Amino acid sequence: MARSDIALELPKMRASYEGGSLDESELADTWYEQLQRWLDEAANFGLAEPNAMVLATSDPQGHPSSRTVLAKGLDERGLVFFTNYTSAKSHDLMATRYAAATFPWFAMQRQANIRGTVEKVDPAETAAYWFSRPRGSQLGAWASPQSRVVADRGVLESALANIERQFADAERVPVPPHWGGWRIRPEIVEFWQGREDRMHDRLRYRLNRDGWKIERLGP
């Protein structure tokens, strides 16, 4: 299809949302119980990587950036993911201490959005997750100069080979000093359910001085 044909088709691309509804009476008592419920339902639905979320950050000048990461922890304290602390996203988070994340469950006509401050998780929590990872993923985390420019693929493969030799005799690969978890501590958590005629359901938990409040938003 020619580029002009694609451009002409874009305005016609739409889907009818008729898969469900979301009422205040259906919500869990807490945002994290509701999010866990939807994560479980997404997994049971058969979605690939239901814990994948689009993480949005910004630098000190306000320039936004987004990428997909995997949620690896959820409780009343917040939502956790792990990454390289020298990465672009970590530099943003260390500078602004704020982030947003969206779970886009397109096949279920749902999404959930979390916004709040961030903090590094403690080393014990990082270690507990690290030692549950496959050895190959551990070695890759040591080898990758995340977000930095490299000359070619050969540079990465050489770095990985060096790390493999370094830890060849190690029963356990240690946690890199430059790697760990971030926790988003939500101030707002919104649950979105697609509805017919674009009259979607949007319910959010919002933190105020008196605790969490549930609000309905216009679609």
Rank of each mutant, 00 (worst) to 15 (best):
Arg204Trp: 01
Trp105Thr: 04
Leu207Ser: 04
Asp152Cys: 06
Arg206Val: 08
Arg135Asn: 12
Gln193Ala: 12
Leu10Phe: 06
Gln166Ile: 07
Val150Thr: 11
Val54Tyr: 10
Phe82Thr: 01
Ser132Arg: 09
Glu164Gln: 15
Ala127Pro: 13
Ala99Lys: 03
Asp201Ala: 03
Gly180Lys: 06
Gln34Ser: 03
Ala151Tyr: 09
Val149Gly: 00
Trp105Ala: 10
Ser21Thr: 11
Pro123Thr: 04
Leu207Asp: 06
Thr83His: 03
Gln34Glu: 10
Ser87Cys: 09
Leu93Thr: 00
Pro104Asp: 09
Asp75Ser: 05
Leu47Asp: 00
Arg204Lys: 15
His178Glu: 13
Asn44Gln: 15
Val189Glu: 06
Trp179Pro: 02
Ser90Asp: 11
Asn162Lys: 10
Arg185Phe: 03
Gly20Cys: 08
Arg183Leu: 02
Glu196Cys: 02
Leu203Asp: 00
Arg153Glu: 07
Trp192Thr: 04
Tyr17Lys: 06
Gly194Gln: 00
Leu203Met: 06
Arg185Met: 08
Arg172Asn: 14
His200Gln: 10
Arg14Ser: 14
Asp169Gln: 13
Ser66Arg: 01
Gln61Phe: 05
Gln193Glu: 10
Leu39Cys: 07
Ala56Met: 05
Gly154Ser: 15
Ile6Gly: 03
Ala48Trp: 11
Ala128Cys: 10
Ile114Asn: 04
Pro64Gln: 07
Thr126Val: 15
Leu27Phe: 08
Ala128Thr: 07
Arg153Asp: 08
Arg135Gln: 14
Asp40Thr: 15
Leu27Cys: 03
Asp92Pro: 01
Leu27Ile: 06
Leu160Asp: 02
Met1Gln: 14
Gln34Phe: 11
Gly218Lys: 15
Ala168Asn: 04
Asp40Gln: 13
His91Asn: 14
Val118Ser: 05
Ala71Asp: 08
Gln109Trp: 01
Leu8Pro: 09
Gly154Pro: 03
Lys12Pro: 05
Ala151Lys: 09
Arg97Gly: 02
Leu10Tyr: 00
Asn51Lys: 13
Gln36Ser: 02
Ala161Arg: 10
Arg165Glu: 13
Gly180Ile: 04
Asn113Val: 01
Asn44Ser: 12
Ala56Gln: 01
Ala88Leu: 03
Arg195Asn: 07
Gln109Ser: 12
Tyr32Pro: 00
Leu156Arg: 03
Ala127Thr: 14
Pro145His: 07
Ala71Pro: 01
Met108Gly: 06
Ala52Met: 12
Val189Ile: 02
Leu79His: 02
Ser137Trp: 10
Gln61Cys: 02
Gln193Met: 11
Asp152Leu: 07
Phe103Val: 03
Gln193Asn: 05
Gly46His: 13
Leu93Glu: 04
Met108Asp: 03
Glu125Leu: 15
Gly62Tyr: 01
Leu139Pro: 02
Asp152Ser: 13
Gly140Cys: 11
Gln166His: 07
Glu9Ala: 15
Ser87Phe: 05
His63Phe: 09
Glu49Gln: 14
